[in-house]
Design a protein around this nucleic acid. Sequence first.
DNA 1: ATGACGATTTACT
DNA 2: GTAAATCGTCATA
Length: 220
Amino acid sequence: MPRLSRPFFARPAKIVARDLLGCTLVRILPSGTRLAGMIVETEAYVGVKDAGCHSHKGRRTPKNEAMYKQGGTFYVYFTYGMHFCCNVVCGGDNEPVAVLLRALEPVEGVPVMAKRRGIPAAHPLGKNVCDGPGKLCQAMGIERSDNGADLVSGDSIWIESRMRGMKIPRIVTGPRIGLSTETVWKNRVLRFGIKDHRCLSKPFPTGKTRNKKTTSKSRG
DNA sequence: ATGACGATTTACT
DNA sequence: GTAAATCGTCATA
């Protein structure tokens, strides 16, 4: 499938986060091996106003510098002393918004990915290979040197559009995972996933969330 | 120079 | 469910 081009990324993170579902992240290892996984879960980080975002209040350091580049840039960071997480920068130049890739369904090079993950073989349904932001980076060999890469023009990592004929995925939503900040931003609906997919990192909230007046007694 | 902490994962009770 | 693993980055001094 054709790669996503600049205009796809040069849009608001919330839109890109939804539209990335069903697209394919492609990785060419130094050995030439091609790995690929379908994006099944994302989170939007919407910039300087977003208390959960690395660029909150215009914060700009060597670590998050890639967020300030043009849409289509890859932003990779290291966390908890042992994991990488990867993001797709969105919007325009100097507009620090991004989409975190949280889970993939492994598609090509699955045995290689499983080995990179330290498991003997992939689960038959692809579980436990790329179903988490740290896991997918480990599986696909995404690390420090990929920070700042251009997904539009680079030759080691890019994203391809949904397969022709693919049904528009049913999307489920929820609050983002792992945020410590106790603000409205912690509860904002900025996490997106393909409904009922086997490779989601964590369950999404079930049922209707719009009735706020649920009492403690009525919770079953 | 020092200390706190993190957009996580894993193993263990 | 809880806790450990593990270290680069950034704010403070």
